[in-house]
Design a protein around this nucleic acid. Structure first.
Lengths: 223, 223
DNA sequence: CGGTGGGTTGAGGTATTTCAAGGCTCGTGG
DNA sequence: CCACGAGCCTTGAAATACCTCAACCCACCG
């Protein structure tokens, strides 16, 4: 594994933002760092841990036998991922950039939930929120045009990671494409169109730092 | 509303197959019948009830403003649908054919769950199973070809509703198309291809009764 | 018996993919 | 310090999978 253990215990009083009521000392294991590109867990592997991004970004995806990839979600700082109700992970998770995560043993969560209705509620609400995202994404993948998908992606990322008006995307065009069910060229062309229409601007030439110039027009495209 | 009240109380000792531990007398309200094509609830409406299909079939879908439709799931006899964690429904639900449903008040479910860990677990497991379906469907919508989508659809329906070797689809080609992110013509053509390859056969001319002649070959196409 | 609601099939159009080339940035090593 | 290659992105041109439009068929039903 491409894992470096860094800290034995968390330095924050809580493990998971949304699991505020956890008796954290029983649950938190440690922080881990993953190098960019390394796998955190694989699809169908036993789901022994639940993860929270401390810093960095993670992609969760499924592969078809011939290599076609569908990214189901991006996980950014603060997000929890890898939470399963069954025994196995349903996605492969990889660090998009160098990433630090915290993790909790899953069985202990289940045991605690058995006695604590608040935690049970939190588990349900997290699962429900993943479901909501997947439902919305089905509409995008099944029925939206390339431009609409890219617009929706930008609005989602704007909501989730914009700091000081500029959105610094951690993922490359191919990741975006595999999230949106497109090719990287189509994503690139859609971004160019939005740029030409002065709906967004790039900062620097990395093309990963984006500023939304006309959010209303983008929202219009989202449908 | 296009609703006809038919029965005041259920005749079975349990409401929801998977909610085996429910004190049903506190929860079940009644059975309702919906005529084919009628709406059971609308997207964004308050989610006051949870439903179970007794007989018939239901489609859950989202619409874009210009009428494009994405069906998120089909609900067949025994299936539970309309269960939300939040306050509002995320889909519109319509009867595909004349359909009988049972329903339970949602608030009462939440209250019972608070005291009964078994019910809480059931709610979580149902939500998780909806999530699993949505995750798999994202892969289909984002990355599979038309033929692969139709093959996957047939295998899903075969698993869920085949009786005596023949699968009697309740939904029309347009429904299938909107479930698979295709047009009805493309679905029809894909079925014709499978028919020509002797992978499936039709019974009668309604084209809704299908028998799978070569499941292995179909599974191959599913990827 | 005509109309309506499916379903299939063909022909042509188009959004997106595929294939290909080129540019920019950055890190590495001579 | 600069050359060089790798990774990432953009852009163009050609190919194609799927969509659109249209015609036709069949079953059902008032």
């Amino acid at each position: 594994m491409f894992v470096n253990v860094t800290g034995g215990s968390a330095n924050k009083p809580r493990f998971l933002g949304e699991l505020g009521s956890l008796p954290q000392n029983e649950i938190i294991l440690s922080e881990f760092k993953y190098r960019r590109g390394s796998e955190i867990f694989g699809e169908a592997e036993p789901a022994d841990y639940v993860y929270q991004v401390v810093d960095g970004a993670v992609r969760s995806y499924k592969l078809l036998s011939d290599g076609r990839r569908q990214i189901g979600a991006f996980h950014l700082a603060g997000d929890i991922f890898g939470l399963e109700n069954g025994e196995a992970h349903r996605f492969t998770a990889e660090a998009i950039v160098d990433t630090t995560v915290r993790l909790a043993k899953r069985v202990s969560l289940a045991i605690v939930a058995e006695h604590d209705a608040a935690i049970a509620r939190d588990l349900l609400s997290m699962t429900a929120s993943n479901l909501r995202h997947a439902e919305d994404h089905m509409l995008l993948l099944g029925r939206k045009t390339a431009l609409e998908r890219v617009a929706a992606f930008l609005l989602e990322m704007d909501r989730r990671l914009t700091a000081a008006g500029v959105m610094a995307l951690p993922m490359c065009r191919r990741d975006i494409a595999d999230y949106l069910g497109l090719t990287l060229e189509t994503v690139s062309r859609a971004l160019s169109v939005l740029h030409d229409k002065s709906i967004l601007g790039f900062i620097g030439q990395s093309q990963r730092q984006i500023v939304l110039l006309d959010r209303p027009k983008l929202a219009e495209l989202d449908l």
